[in-house]
Design a binder for these strands. Structure first.
Lengths: 156, 156
DNA sequence: ATAAAACCTCAACAATAGTTGAGGTCAATA
DNA sequence: TATTGACCTCAACTATTGTTGAGGTTTTAT
């Protein structure tokens, strides 16, 4: 237990403090600010000062990134929230419900891929008509314009 | 059923043909070649000609990409394989076993995240000591230097 | 009061995964 | 043979997610 000095109970945090406590680099916090993901107040000397709620905001950003969501979408989602107070249960619920949905889709897609990868060890990816990894109407078609059907004559 | 002309049974494919059949852009094939992922023979006029096996190679690259593996690693894996003949069952087995392992880890990680996201709707991410998304020794510590423990005093 | 540590902006750079365009050549068809 | 579509190289550009460094200012501690 460290003794907490009075000065450390102040309401606002410097970038360095936010960086240390959130685990992201100072440069990243600057970057997030340019992207509109976080916001800061400035001292008269133009230095950033953050409300403590920024820590939770950064944590949310990191969680969303881990689900594979790009910063632009995170920004969209966060933009409807206040950035001057901690999230409420309702705030968080709206965010996470949406993200959980996307995450679920990604997981489902990856699991399908894994299963096909597993079964394709058996087929050796040699059988055109049976291997789902080589069939445009199965997994590969799930993302963009995937590989097309290949000819049987490409076999040895 | 289209009638296949004799000239279409030739052994080598042009970039345009590979692009069309594999579903990737010509520029991407050029790019893959600079990265050592595929290789081409050249005509006397310096145009690329590919053995048909390149189609399977490109398909494998696309599958690996979907699992989240970067091109550099795909290149490493493919570099031990011949690029002048189709993959055998053994070739494919070696590749996919390794990639399936990585894919499994990603899936496991994302599922843990999803579960925490779900349970955190209930906790509203307000309870510092209970929410695993905010605890550095749980999920967040699984990838790099994640967010650190936050103060209780960041609550309203 | 002064020095050190932390902060500021802005531009450039890094890695990944490509795409686009300019300027010129090759090959297949009429 | 002439033309047209496909091809060639190379450089520059796109987007994402940041990091690094130069040159200068503010804050904090002694």
């Amino acid at each position: 237990m460290t003794i907490v000095k009075n000065s450390e109970l102040r309401r606002e945090l410097t970038v360095g403090e936010v960086a240390e406590r959130s685990g992201v680099a100072v440069s990243t916090l600057h970057f997030y600010e340019t992207k509109g993901l976080i916001r800061s107040n400035r001292t008269r000397g133009n230095q950033r000062r953050y409300p403590r709620s920024v820590l939770r905001r950064v944590a949310v950003i990191k969680v969303a990134q881990r689900t594979g969501i790009p910063l632009s979408e995170i920004q969209d989602a966060l933009s409807v929230l206040p950035d001057d107070r901690p999230l409420t249960v309702e705030d968080w619920g709206r965010l996470s419900e949406n993200w959980r949905e996307q995450l679920n889709e990604r997981i489902t897609s990856l699991m399908a891929l894994r299963d096909h990868l597993t079964s394709c060890i058996g087929c050796g990816c040699l059988s055109l008509r049976e291997c789902p990894l080589r069939n445009p109407h199965d997994v590969l078609s799930m993302e963009g314009a995937g590989p097309r059907l290949m000819d049987e004559d490409s076999h040895p």
